[in-house]
Design a binder for these strands. Structure first.
Length: 454
RNA sequence: GUGGGUGUAGCUCAGCUGGUUAGAGCGCCAGGUUGUGGCCCUGGAGGCCGCGGGUUCGAAUCCCGUCACUCACCCCA
C-alpha cells in the first residue's frame, strides 16, 4: 500500500449558494399551498398564467426602475449568444405585464385577473427567509380603477394566508399617491431632509438625493426622530388619490379585515401608485417579516408600451409562508403493498398491480422475491470489501419480516401476500395494516376488496 | 458588499482548561427459530472531527489562513 496513492478529493457537487432542493419529504407542504392557491383564487375569478423565467433585461430595467436595488445590483443578467441581454426574473409583475401587452389580453378579457406561481431570482446575501432562488405566488388584476378592486385584492391575500394556517399577521396600508403626487412629495421630502442631513445616517444622506422616499423605511435608531417629524405623504395626496385610499380603508373595515396605516410603508419598486400594502408576521421570520407585499401600478402598462391600463397586484413569498405555516404531516405513499413470496407468484402479482393501478389504487410491488442468479449473493448487512460501499443493501433477498417493515414504512394500508399456500388456495392473504387483521381474498377479487375498504 | 456565529456519523448534537481504538439520540441494516409491520431488547454498518498550515512528545481540542454554512446590516417576498 503506497501512502501517497489516495485519490484526489474532489469538491463535492452541491447546490448553488442561496438555492435549495425541495426534497420528497417537503413537497407535500408545497402541494398544499399550491392547491389552496388554485382553489382560493378561482373563487375570486382569477386564472393562472405562466410566463418564462427569463426575459429581456430591458423589461425589468424599465418596469422595476433603473435605480432600484433589485435592478442595479441584484439581477442575474447574462448575454445571449446573439448579443442580447437576458435576465432571470427577479419578480413576476413585469413579465406578466409584458405578456398582457404582447397578447392584448385586456382586450380579449375585460375582467383580466390572473395569478401565477414560480421561482424568482435575486442575487442577494442569503439569510433566514431570503434566498437567491425563491418562489412567489403572484396575483394581478387589470383594468379596474375603482378602489373596490384594491380592497378585494388585499382581502384575498389576507384570507389566503389565513387559509394556509398562518396567524399573528398584521396588515399595513399606505397610499403613495399618483405619479405626480409622488413626484411632488419626493421634492418636499428632499427639501426637508437636506436641512437635517447632519442628523441622518450615511445611507439616508445618500438616499436623500437618489430616492428620498426610502428614507422613511430606515431603521437606524438615530434617524427615527427626524423621520417622525417629516412631512407625511397623506398630506400631499391629490384629491382623487385621497378619496381612493379612504374608500379602500372603508371597505376593508366593512369586510372586517384588521389593518393599520403607515405613512412609512414605501415599497422598493418604482411602479407603485396609490395603494401599497404589506402583510407582516409578528414572529417567526427573523428580520424578514414581510410575507406578502404589493400595490397598485397604474402607469406601468403604459410605460412598458401598452395601453393606458391600470393594475394592482401582490406577491407573496412561498418559503416565508412555509416558515410560518403549521407543519404538514407526510402523506402515505401506498395503498396496497404486493408481496409475492414464491417465484411463481411474481407474474400474478405483476398483473394484480396493473389492475389496481388502473382502478386508481396506489400499488407498490415488492421485488424482494427476486433472486439473483449468483449463488449466495451477499445478503444485506454483510460487509463488502469494496471501499465505496455506502449505498444501502438492495431490497432483493430481504427477509419476510424486513419486507413487512418496508410496507409499514410506505404507509401501506394493505399488504397482499402471495406464497405457496396462497397459490394453492388461489387466494391472496390480505393483511389490513390498520387493524392487524388478515383474510383470504380470491385472486380475481383483490381490486374489489381493497377498493371497498380504502 | 460589510459584520457576528458555527463547521464532529445520513439528521440533531456532546466531547471541560490538548493525552490511548472519537461518543449519544434519531435514522439505516440484521437478529430476538419455521411466512407477519408498529412497541421493546441485542448486535452492526457508517466519521481524513470542513480544508491547508503552525505550535507541541502529542491537536477534534490552541494559533493563523482559507472555504462553506448561518444570522444580521443593505434591500425585499
Amino acid at each position: 500500500m503506497s501512502e501517497g496513492s489516495k485519490p484526489p478529493k474532489r469538491q463535492a457537487l452541491k447546490a448553488i449558494k442561496g438555492t435549495h432542493d425541495i426534497l420528497p419529504g417537503e413537497t407535500a407542504a408545497w402541494h398544499r399551498v399550491e392547491g389552496l392557491a388554485r382553489e382560493h383564487f378561482a373563487r375570486y375569478g382569477y386564472r393562472e398564467i405562466r410566463t418564462p423565467v427569463f426575459e429581456e433585461t430591458e423589461l425589468f430595467a424599465r418596469g422595476i426602475g433603473e435605480d432600484t436595488d433589485v435592478v442595479s445590483k441584484e439581477m442575474y443578467t447574462f448575454g445571449d449568444r446573439d448579443g442580447g441581454s437576458l435576465t432571470l426574473r427577479p419578480e413576476a409583475t413585469a413579465g406578466i405585464v409584458r405578456s398582457v401587452i404582447e397578447h392584448n389580453l385586456s382586450n380579449v378579457d375585460p375582467l383580466l385577473r390572473v395569478w401565477a406561481m414560480g421561482p424568482m431570482f435575486r442575487r442577494e446575501r442569503p439569510q433566514k427567509g431570503r434566498q437567491r432562488q425563491f418562489h412567489q405566488v403572484d396575483v394581478e388584476a387589470f383594468g379596474v380603477t375603482a378602489p373596490g378592486i384594491d380592497a378585494e385584492i388585499v382581502e384575498m391575500g389576507f384570507a389566503f394566508l389565513e387559509r394556509c394556517g398562518l396567524s399573528g399577521l398584521e396588515l399595513i396600508l399606505n397610499s403613495v399617491g399618483d405619479a405626480e403626487d409622488r413626484q411632488r412629495y419626493a421634492g418636499v421630502l428632499r427639501e426637508a431632509l437636506r436641512v437635517q442631513a447632519s442628523a441622518l445616517c450615511a445611507d439616508c444622506q445618500r438616499r436623500t438625493e437618489t430616492n428620498p422616499l426610502r428614507v422613511l423605511d430606515c431603521k437606524v435608531p438615530s434617524c427615527q426622530p427626524v423621520i417622525e417629524a417629516l412631512p407625511k405623504i397623506a398630506d400631499h395626496l391629490g384629491a382623487d388619490a385621497r378619496d381612493h385610499f379612504a374608500e379602500v380603508c372603508r371597505q376593508l373595515t366593512l369586510l372586517g379585515i384588521p389593518y393599520r396605516t403607515s405613512h412609512r410603508l414605501v415599497r422598493g419598486l418604482d411602479y407603485y401608485t396609490r395603494t401599497t400594502f404589506e402583510i407582516v408576521a409578528t414572529e417567526g421570520l427573523g428580520s424578514q417579516s414581510t410575507v406578502l407585499g404589493g400595490g397598485r401600478y397604474d402607469g406601468l402598462v403604459r410605460d412598458l408600451g401598452g395601453p393606458d391600463l391600470c393594475g394592482i397586484g401582490f406577491a407573496l413569498g412561498v418559503e416565508r409562508l412555509l416558515l410560518l405555516a403549521p407543519p404538514a404531516g407526510d402523506e402515505p405513499r401506498c395503498d396496497v403493498f404486493l408481496m409475492p413470496l414464491a417465484a411463481a407468484a411474481g407474474d400474478p402479482a405483476l398483473m394484480a398491480q396493473k389492475l389496481l393501478r388502473n382502478a386508481g389504487v396506489r400499488a407498490v410491488l415488492d421485488h424482494g422475491f427476486w433472486r439473483r442468479r449468483e449463488v449466495g449473493a451477499s445478503p444485506a448487512g454483510a460487509p463488502s470489501d469494496s471501499a465505496a460501499s455506502s449505498a444501502p443493501a438492495p431490497v432483493e433477498g430481504r427477509s419476510f419480516k424486513s419486507r413487512m417493515k418496508l410496507a409499514d414504512k410506505l404507509g401501506a394500508r394493505f399488504v397482499a401476500i402471495l406464497g405457496d399456500d396462497e397459490l394453492a388456495q388461489g387466494a391472496w392473504s390480505v393483511r389490513d395494516m390498520k387493524t392487524s387483521s388478515q383474510e383470504p381474498v380470491p385472486l380475481p377479487a383483490l381490486v374489489e376488496h381493497v377498493k371497498g375498504r380504502l
